[in-house]
């Protein structure tokens, strides 16, 4: 196993583990406000200190990981679930009207960055984690659709697909049986990348108040709250950010490591 893969797996496991653990146990209750203990630096009692309401930052980060991972994961699921079939269909009907419609639709979604989608949704339904999921998820659709189509197109001219057509198999069946397994690695790698981008996007949306609403802890909100306190107690602003960086870094390393491992062509290049 490569160093990337090990480090990436460890970091991802660490945060996922912390998020899962937070369902059962956190060092302190994140709902309890203890004003007397506000803005304490890291100590034996509070390993990562406390915020301006006296809440334990470690506990907040653990519960925040839950929000981040949930939002990003569902958003990737939406992107893959809708994008991959669309991309495969476009590739199967390459050059036809269906391909044209799907690709132009993709271009159109690309014109709405996820923040803009979030703004539109929030303007109508008000802010919330669900809206963040939808906004990031919609933006993920064209990413996966383009990727799937681009990877599937050269496969359609390959002779093993021709052979399947000679055997009378239909386009959807060939897509499922021959195309999808051959682009799965690529989709997995892109999935980890979109997952990490989703975490960043969720943090950004929560930071500007379009994502998860209080009292649900989220990393972006913690940073927004810490902003005015940054001179007084820098750790309140630094630590949640560090959590984001490590989580995203872990996912990216995992993606790189998986790519090197799954794609023999790339492994040869590295050798």
């Amino acid at each position: 196993m490569s160093r990337n893969l090990i480090l990436g797996t460890l970091l991802t496991a660490l945060f996922t583990g912390a998020a899962l653990l937070s369902f059962l146990w956190t060092p302190y209750d994140t709902g309890a406000l203890v004003i007397a203990e506000r803005l304490q630096p890291p100590s034996a009692a509070h390993w990562l200190g406390t915020d301006h309401f006296g809440r334990d930052i470690l506990s907040m980060i653990m519960v925040g990981a839950r929000t981040s991972i949930a939002v990003a994961l569902v958003a990737v699921g939406i992107g893959m679930g809708a994008g991959v079939p669309l991309g495969l269909a476009a590739a199967a009907r390459r050059g036809g009207w269906l391909d044209e419609v799907i690709m132009r639709g993709n271009d159109l979604i690309f014109a709405f960055p996820s923040l803009v989608i979030a703004i539109l949704i929030t303007a109508i339904f008000g802010p919330g984690a669900t809206n963040a999921i939808i906004a990031i998820g919609i933006f993920n659709i064209p990413v996966f659709a383009r990727l799937a189509r681009g990877a599937a197109l050269p496969l359609w001219t390959r002779e093993f697909v021709m052979a399947a057509r000679v055997a009378g198999k239909s386009a959807p069946r060939i897509s499922a049986e021959h195309i999808l397994p051959n682009i799965a690695n690529l989709l997995i790698v892109q999935g980890t990348i979109q997952f990490s981008l989703g975490i960043l996007a969720e943090a950004g949306l929560s930071y500007v108040g379009l994502g998860a609403q209080p009292p649900v802890p989220s990393w972006g909100r913690m940073l927004a709250d810490a902003q005015t306190m940054v001179a007084l107690a820098p750790h309140v602003a630094i630590l949640p950010g560090l959590a984001i960086v490590l989580m995203v870094l872990g996912l990216n390393l995992l993606g790189d490591g998986l790519r090197d491992r799954l794609d023999p062509r790339l492994r040869v290049v590295r050798a």
């Binding site: 002779e159 093993f160 021709m162 052979a163 000679v166 051959n182």
Partner: peptide, 21 residues
């Protein structure tokens, strides 16, 4: 299909004509 099954083909590229999986 009933006509098609009476015709088969062998392609050029011995490396590209099989699904490696």
């Amino acid at each position: 299909p009933s006509v098609r099954r009476r015709v088969q083909v062998v392609f050029q590229d011995p490396y590209g004509s099989f699904n490696p999986r």
